[in-house]
Computed example of a mutant assay.
Amino acid sequence: MSDSAIGAAGDIAGAVADPRRGLTRLRAAATGRTVTIVAAGLVIGYLAARLRRRR
């Protein structure tokens, strides 16, 4: 996983603790590539959870 995706995950976690500051940092750090990587990770995690749940 790239450093930018790790940073985005940290910014999301920060948004939970301090929503105003965290969302400002998240908007500033979000690039197209980072958003794509995080979205792909969410989709893969969701599909893996569904597959595991069905078994």
Rank of each mutant, 00 (worst) to 15 (best):
M1D: 12
M1H: 06
S2E: 11
S2P: 13
S2C: 11
D3S: 15
S4V: 15
S4E: 15
S4M: 14
G7M: 09
A8D: 00
A8F: 08
A8I: 14
A9H: 03
G10P: 01
G10D: 09
G10I: 06
D11P: 02
D11H: 14
I12P: 00
I12C: 01
I12S: 00
I12D: 00
A13G: 10
G14L: 03
A15M: 08
A15C: 10
A15L: 05
A17V: 13
A17M: 08
A17W: 00
D18H: 12
D18Q: 12
D18T: 11
D18S: 11
D18G: 04
P19Y: 06
R20Y: 13
R20C: 11
R20A: 15
R21T: 14
G22V: 04
G22E: 01
G22I: 03
G22N: 03
G22T: 02
L23C: 13
L23R: 13
T24W: 11
T24K: 15
R25H: 11
L26F: 08
L26V: 02
L26A: 10
L26D: 00
L26H: 04
L26T: 00
L26S: 03
R27P: 00
R27V: 06
R27N: 04
A28H: 11
A28Q: 15
A29F: 10
A29L: 13
A30F: 02
T31W: 02
T31R: 12
G32A: 09
G32S: 07
G32W: 03
R33H: 13
T34M: 09
V35F: 02
T36A: 14
T36E: 14
I37N: 09
I37W: 04
V38Y: 02
V38S: 04
A39R: 08
A39F: 02
A39D: 03
A39C: 04
A40N: 11
A40E: 12
G41Q: 05
G41V: 02
L42P: 01
L42V: 14
L42D: 05
V43W: 06
I44L: 11
G45C: 05
G45A: 07
G45K: 04
G45E: 02
Y46D: 06
Y46T: 12
A48P: 00
A48Q: 08
A49M: 10
A49V: 07
A49T: 09
A49E: 04
R50T: 06
L51H: 13
L51P: 02
R52D: 09
R52V: 12
R52F: 07
R53D: 13
R53K: 14
R53H: 12
R53E: 12
R54V: 07
R54M: 06
R54A: 10
R54Q: 10
R54H: 06
R55V: 06
R55A: 10
R55E: 10
